[in-house]
Amino acid sequence: MGEVLALRGFSAFIGAFAALTIVGCSSDNNPTPIQDSLIAAIREFGKEPDTQANRRAVEALTREQLTGVGSNPTILVDVEVADAYASLFQISLNGQHDVFMTADQVTVTFSKGLLTATRGIGADLYSADVSQTRAAIQGGASGVVATARVHRSLSGDNQVIAIRYECSLVDHGVEPVVSIHKTFRLRRYVETCRFDGDEVFANTYWVDPVTRVMWKSRQWVSPLAGYFGIDVLIPGKS
């Protein structure tokens, strides 16, 4: 009896609270974000989202068709953890940083191809200081280079949490790589990053040996969001 009471009390408290805030009608014509997501959830209830539709659509098209008529920088991102695939277009350029956006308002920021921030996926990368890695790759690093990078995230309590990773960037030489129907000859770098001695992630970058353009990469976002696989159709302007 005691158990049931407290359990009900607790979930009823949260549930009723949520319901009272969301349900009902009002003079306000614009639904709040919470109402929006509730409506979306009801609409999509029971439907399996077709996470592969984008990938199939992309694979059916040539690079020329994908880039269309414009020359706006475009990338394709494979969110491994969600088995989702999206195309993003550049919407902003700020010095060495390119901001790309999906159609549903997720942004991903890169500096010379290196991921520095995400917004709108929940477990976002708030910022990443990748200056050492960027300098090494742009400087044509070979062999093994020690790098350090600082990743920041916004905690559930709105605190900016910084973690410094000690990494080693290893040059694996030039190899043929296929990216969206096209074979490139690119230099592969693997950057393995540790925190407190434990390996946390390993990013892979494929970079043009001459122009230093990063055409393809697999980069870590955060513990919950995992890795993004990135293919570049038209490189960012930075």
Partner: peptide, 26 residues
């Protein structure tokens, strides 16, 4: 006994889900 514990410091969602802000125009 049933014990339920949560921590206000950790969001159950792992972050906030609103859309990205518009970038600064430089």
């Amino acid at each position: 006994r049933v014990t339920m514990a949560l921590n206000p410091k950790n969001s159950p969602i792992g972050g906030s889900l609103e859309g990205a802000p518009a970038p600064v125009f430089v």
